[in-house]
Design a protein around this nucleic acid. Structure first.
Lengths: 196, 196
DNA sequence: CCTGAAAGCTCTACAGC
DNA sequence: GCTGTAGAGCTTTCAGG
């Protein structure tokens, strides 16, 4: 029930190509009626697989400063704070936090915005080191690779099949493959929460 | 004509939030009729500002390996080749090429895929250095910052106002602020093409 | 560059299997 | 979980300003 089948994958692929495509058209493509497609899309949204429908914008055509990658090493313990600060700015489009001190961010910003970011917004004491690199070219390939498109158990990592459990905690959905993983996950979750 | 006004920005913002929103609803929001919104969206597509309508997928919920950032320093002259190779793989979702030797890539890949990438696909001679980092957390904030949302002249960089020129070359659209920038751009383009 | 009306499609219940 | 149907609602074209 929690598992995605080939039809779900096809639907995701068709919607990635054009999110405004009609459910009727998608239905014809995958061999289902429009209402069935609609139901499946709704389910995919509830599962949290589809976070939303959005635009693929060509930002290079829009004049909002240069395309830039930031590579930042935060001081131990400051990673969250740095990532948080970066996310506050509209011109920062991606923030990727690696497990080390490293944070990689990407966005369109001009010199003024960069100066503001590093000289005022970010606490110098929370940065170990950083590099600002202008981007020559960037590409994004949205892709849904059919083969391994199944949900992953939040506790043990195995794929979730029939009989899986879905739990909603603090507005986020988690999927588990069985009830024992569910209770382990709940425990772990509570501990994490108390620690924070 | 080539310029974007505040209403265009609002429309872009609303569509970024939900690309399946109806044109009627958007029209009510921005104070236009549905047909006008439809026309503007069409124009934004023709201008190349909207590349398409797509999904925001939560890939972390899909079992396709770990979320990974790759930081690669290509040897001088090999940047294009390395970026090309990275893009060939479905599991590589973003490729950002900085002006230096540095290439940053992001995607979901397991150990097997990583090994294949670095041991077989990429020529070791074209790499100076690289780091593979697992991602703890990542976020993406699609954003359209109203203030400077105007098209930028492909030749001189100034905003394109009324009287701008749009040129289509090899399936890509370029915007210029005036006819002199247009001829300069055409020259430059031909040279670049011959060089390649 | 806009609107309003009208025709044609699309979506979404809902009943039934 | 799927289909067909039917009413509501949306998109799009077109005439007109």
């Amino acid at each position: 029930m929690t598992e995605l089948d080939d039809t779900d994958t096809e639907i995701l692929q068709l919607l990635m190509e054009d999110a405004r495509r009609s459910y009727k058209e998608i239905g014809e493509e995958v061999g289902l009626s429009a209402p069935s497609v609609s139901n499946r899309v709704e389910r995919l949204e509830e599962l949290g697989v589809i976070r939303g429908f959005t635009l693929d914008l060509d930002r290079s055509v829009l004049a909002t400063g240069d395309e830039v990658v930031l590579e930042i090493d935060a001081r131990p313990g400051s990673g969250d704070e740095v990532a948080e600060t970066l996310r506050e700015f509209d011109f920062v489009e991606h923030v990727v936090r690696a497990i080390d001190p490293r944070i990689v961010a990407y966005g369109h910003m001009d010199d003024r915005e960069l100066r503001h970011l590093f000289e005022e917004a970010l606490d110098p004491d929370s940065l170990e080191d950083y590099a600002i690199r202008k981007v020559a070219e960037s590409s994004w390939q949205p892709n849904v690779d059919g083969a391994d498109l199944a949900l992953e158990c939040a506790e043990c990592g195995k794929p979730v099949h029939e009989g899986g459990v879905t739990v909603e905690m603090d507005d986020r959905r988690y999927h588990m493959c069985c009830t024992s993983c569910e209770s382990l996950f709940r425990e772990r979750y509570e501990e994490l929460k108390e620690a924070a």
